[in-house]
Simulated scan of single mutants.
Amino acid sequence: MPDDWTRALAVVAHPDDLEYGTAAAIARWTGEGREISYLLATRGEAGIDILDPAEAAPLREREQRASAAVVGVTSVEFLGHRDGVIEYGTVLRRDIAAAIRRHRPELLITINHRDTWGGTYWNTPDHRAVGRAVLDAAADAGNRWIFPELTADGLAPWNGVRWVAVSGSSSPTHSVGVDDTHLEAAVRSLLEHRTYIEALTDQDPEEYCRDFVAQVTSSSGGRAAVSFELFTR
């Protein structure tokens, strides 16, 4: 992965999306002194079947902020799109482009925007919509004529995004090596989503987190790593 950057913006659909592996790389990067901010399209209100969305939304927002803090991220924003029915289009692109102009990152991070996770395991419409919008908004943010209202609101164009890194891709091109400290931070970060995990599985939450992080960071070379599909600009 390129390492000549100082600021990144991670944009995903739901609380917990970044914690399923990507957080290990984020822990490494913040430990190196890089600045990373999170942008969540939804508050994850439709993600827990036993909780009404009005109750789930603030709970999942709190869990996400605590989870981000574990890996050194203090800036966490929520766009407020409806969980489960995010629509790809100009509204979403504009919201993400505005955030890019505010944060002025060189690197954007998102998760798999493709139809499947590889094979026949179908991806969710929210992931697909947000991932595609991130790739498009990287260019939108630098073009003053696409969303001129952003400039009128004081958000000057930012054409400084150099890469978009997509985690969870079935076609990875790059990887970020991580050590035991980064892996432990990733486990603790995922474990902050305890309410979601306890509703998701009967497995012990910490055991579940350790198993999942170990699985997604394993590599054929024997060294733990987080893989990405890297798009250049």
Rank of each mutant, 00 (worst) to 15 (best):
H113C: 05
E55C: 09
L39S: 14
E61R: 13
E32C: 06
F78D: 06
R7E: 04
D52L: 14
V91P: 03
G80S: 09
V11I: 15
G44I: 07
A97I: 03
R28C: 00
G33Y: 10
R60D: 15
R43V: 05
V11R: 02
A69R: 14
S75D: 12
I50N: 09
A23D: 10
G47H: 10
A25C: 04
R101C: 04
A25I: 01
H81C: 09
P58L: 14
D17S: 08
A46G: 13
G80L: 00
E55W: 02
E32M: 09
T42M: 09
P53C: 10
A98G: 10
A97G: 07
L107M: 15
A54I: 08
V71E: 01
E106C: 11
E35R: 12
T6R: 13
R28Q: 05
W5I: 00
T6F: 07
G80R: 01
L79P: 03
G33I: 02
R94K: 12
L59G: 05
T30P: 05
R94P: 03
I48L: 12
V73H: 01
A66H: 08
W5D: 00
N112E: 06
I109R: 00
R101Q: 04
A41E: 12
D52K: 10
I86C: 07
G72C: 11
D95K: 13
W29L: 12
V73L: 08
G31W: 06
P15H: 04
Y38V: 07
R7P: 03
A25D: 01
G21F: 08
P53H: 06
V11S: 02
A56W: 06
H14M: 08
A66E: 09
I48Y: 05
G80Q: 03
A99I: 02
L92T: 12
H14V: 05
D95C: 15
E77F: 10
V12Q: 07
A25W: 00
F78T: 00
E61P: 02
W29I: 03
A68Y: 05
A46S: 10
R34V: 04
H14A: 02
E55S: 13
R34G: 06
V73D: 02
H81T: 14
R102N: 06
V76D: 01
L9Q: 11
G80P: 13
L40Y: 15
I86Q: 07
E19A: 12
H103W: 13
I96V: 15
E61K: 12
R94Q: 14
E106A: 14
A25R: 00
A99N: 15
D52S: 12
I50L: 07
A68F: 02
T110Q: 03
G33A: 06
G80Y: 02
T6Q: 15
V71D: 00
E45Q: 15
R43M: 08
G33N: 09
E19F: 00
A97P: 05
A8I: 03
I109G: 00
R62I: 14
G47R: 05
R60S: 11
E32G: 10
R60G: 06
E77K: 14
N112C: 13
H113R: 15
T90E: 11
G44A: 06
L92E: 09
S37D: 11
E19N: 13
R62H: 14
R114M: 07
S75W: 07
G72I: 01
A24D: 07
R102W: 03
V11Y: 01
I111F: 09
H103V: 15
T110K: 10
R60T: 11
V73Q: 00
R7Q: 12
R104E: 12
I96Y: 03
